[in-house]
Computed example of a mutant assay.
Amino acid sequence: MFCSQCGVEADGKFCFSCGHPLHQGDGIAPETNVVPPQNELISPPTHSVKWEDDICYEQVLNTDIVRSAIADHGSKAIKGFSGEDCLAIYDKIVPSPIPLAKLATVVQPLYASFGVRTGKTREGTVSAPPGVVLARALCSLAKHTQPFQRVEQADDRCTLIAEFPSSIWALKGEIRITVTKQSNVAHVSALTNIPGQAFDWGKSTKALERLFSDLHSDMGIPVTSQYRAA
């Protein structure tokens, strides 16, 4: 071997020319005091969770089959007749100094500041993996033209917040869907919130019924055989 200090060919523990250590018996390189690469600790590979079992919004949404199903439902969705559309027609039939459509945008937040609101809640268990249930919920929002707004992510649950569009029965509000991971099933709780209005004439109840019906169907995202057997 050659001495790394002076380049003289030598053997043993020290160079006979300059006295520089040639090697050490403990496997430590003397010049850098760093364990050679073959002795470095290597971190184990990160375990990859299947998207069906994942409750992470980003992981589920980035799955091709999920994105395709959402796009398919969105392309077939039919926009409903909104409350604002209805008031605009009333304005044409019965002229008013203050257009009703514009008046609603002022009255609703005013009543909301007084604590006036309405809404419904519903919860239950869906016999499917949490990631699949989360994907079905996203498909349901697209199917019923409920624009997705934001997500609240936790380790064991994910909450989807979307717009609850206005209709002839009620003005615009919010719908929140929380999917909680429970082994090979998922617990779902959902609620609607319509501020500034005391009654919605059954709108929220019907919307939640449609949501849970969607969650119990495959929505173009069927459960694989390994989960059906569980």
Rank of each mutant, 00 (worst) to 15 (best):
P129W: 07
T118G: 02
E123Y: 11
L103C: 04
A128M: 11
R122L: 11
L110F: 14
P130Q: 12
P129D: 06
G119F: 10
K143Y: 05
T145C: 04
V107G: 02
R117S: 15
T105Q: 11
F148T: 05
L134C: 09
P147A: 06
P97N: 06
A142K: 09
P130K: 14
D91V: 00
A101G: 01
V151N: 01
A101K: 15
F114D: 01
P147D: 08
T118K: 06
V132F: 03
A112T: 09
P147M: 02
V94F: 15
I93G: 00
P97Y: 04
A101D: 06
K92M: 11
S140D: 09
K92A: 08
P99C: 02
V106L: 12
K102P: 00
A135F: 07
I98M: 07
Q149K: 14
S96C: 03
K102Q: 11
H144S: 05
L138P: 03
P95G: 02
V94M: 13
F114R: 03
V132I: 15
T105F: 01
K143E: 09
V107N: 05
L138K: 08
A142Y: 05
P129L: 06
K102F: 00
V133M: 09
F148V: 06
L110K: 11
A135C: 12
P99E: 02
L134M: 13
R117F: 12
S140V: 13
T105N: 07
G124H: 12
P99T: 04
Q149V: 13
S127M: 13
P97H: 07
A104S: 14
V94G: 00
A104R: 15
V94N: 07
P99D: 01
E123A: 14
I98Y: 08
K143F: 02
P130A: 15
S113M: 07
A142E: 10
V126C: 01
C139S: 12
R136Q: 12
A104L: 15
R150H: 05
V126N: 04
T118S: 15
Q108V: 13
I98H: 05
V132E: 02
K102W: 00
P99Y: 02
T118P: 00
H144P: 01
Q108K: 15
V133R: 13
A135T: 11
V107A: 13
P97V: 08
P109C: 11
P109Y: 12
V132W: 06
A142W: 06
A135Q: 12
V116Q: 11
H144W: 15
S127C: 10
T105I: 01
Q149P: 00
Q149M: 11
V94P: 00
S96P: 00
F114C: 07
L103K: 10
E123C: 12
V126E: 08
S140T: 10
T145Q: 05
A104Q: 15
V132A: 08
F114K: 05
R150N: 07
R150P: 00
L138Q: 09
G115P: 00
A142S: 14
T125R: 12
K92G: 00
R122G: 05
A135V: 08
V106Y: 10
L110H: 10
P130H: 08
D91S: 03
T145L: 01
Y111K: 14
V133H: 08
I93H: 04
A135M: 09
G115A: 12
A104M: 14
L100W: 07
A104I: 04
Q108T: 13
L134W: 04
V126W: 09
E123W: 11
L134Q: 07
